[in-house]
Design a protein around this nucleic acid. Sequence first.
DNA 1: ATGGTAGAAGGTCTA
Length: 278
Amino acid sequence: MTKPSVAPFALWGPMRITTWNVNSIKQRVGHLLGFLEEARPDVVCLQELKCQDAAFPRAEIEAAGYAVETLGQKAYNGVALLVRAPLTSTQLLRGLPGDAEDEQARYIEALVHGEGIAPVRVASIYLPNGNPAPGPKYAYKLAFMKRLRLHARAMMASEDALVLAGDYNVIPEPVDAADPDAWTQDALFLPETRQAFRALLAEGFTEALRACDPSPGLYTFWDYQAGCWPRNQGIRIDHLLLSPQAADRLVSASVQRHLRGLEKPSDHVPVTVELSDG
DNA sequence: ATGGTAGAAGGTCTA
């Protein structure tokens, strides 16, 4: 018998990192398991779990080969990180630093390790929607974006590859909406929102999907209402931001749009990047 | 002028 040319648990090909706002994990666990099987992502960042940690369908996802870390909340918000064995994670951080009073479950982060692969720090982010604007919800959104920028700056200092993935609730440019005029008064597209997103990018991040695909019509969210999906009235609000060390390893970025066409879909679809092993 | 839909909750609120 010949010795295998690679170690039995070596990663085959690039590391895949997916972000997906599932809009209730309990409603979407079937779709998630199907996606894990078909796409075999190495790390998955989930948002809008809409349940507490005890109610998270942990067993099914662990049975699919993933370690599960959650920051849940009753009814609203909730984020998780799934890490496929034999990858492991350390330095888990639940909650975005910078406001001890903030009780909303919108941020979880960990350092992901694997044999023969450079570590990657990954965050799953559910940035506030912020509507109606102006108002307290919009102020919270802008404050959250500032906290994220300051935390990102601190993380940059480590020089680990860093991937900030999630539902940003930000339409970065007019090309990222099928009908940008419909969004001019919306917290997802107000000038101050877009400016705060640019300020985050200016810390040194590459927005992976746009870097890989400059074409228009690239959306990640279609509202359930008013036939937005059949009319393709989408927006692009789910993003993966890569630090320079992660961007150096960027192989591809893509949207798994077909999942919006399933029965009982989330209103968001997954976005996936592939990073070389370093 | 407003609704249209979905989810958690079983109070309407959030999106």
